[in-house]
């Protein structure tokens, strides 16, 4: 969808909608929202709804970032420590690797 063709009120509606959808544990939607509306929020010449769009973009971005940090931390810890967790590690694994710990 080309944001340039959208009227400003529709942009805000869309941005808010994406933020709300992201609230149900969908950080990728937040990430998309933040990147997609970045230009509208910070680079475009000011318009009425920009302040609110800016708010949603910032919220989405920080939410996505927190998620990313948490996920990366978990994945790192899991990959490094799975073998030493023993039974718990296996129980948490979807695919248990063959032929190694």
């Amino acid at each position: 969808m080309d944001l340039n063709r959208l009227p400003n009120d529709k942009k805000l509606q869309l941005c808010r909608w994406y933020f709300k959808v992201g609230c149900v544990f969908l950080p990728f939607v937040w990430a998309v929202n933040a990147i997609w509306f970045f230009r509208e929020a910070f680079l475009k010449s000011p318009f009425e709804e920009q302040k609110q769009i800016k708010k949603y973009v910032l919220l989405s971005a920080s939410g996505a970032l927190v998620w990313a940090v948490a996920l990366i931390a978990w994945v790192t810890v899991f990959q490094l420590q799975r073998a030493s967790w023993g039974a718990t590690g296996d129980a948490l694994s979807f695919i248990v690797p063959l032929g190694r710990a």
Binding site: D90, G99, A101
Partner: peptide
């Protein structure tokens, strides 16, 4: 290539586990 590793405890547990895949 051998499927089992570590020791009998681990391999028996993995053989018995009802993982999805």
């Amino acid at each position: 290539f051998m499927f089992a590793a570590v020791d009998s405890t681990v391999c028996m547990r993995r053989s018995a586990s009802s993982a999805l895949i």
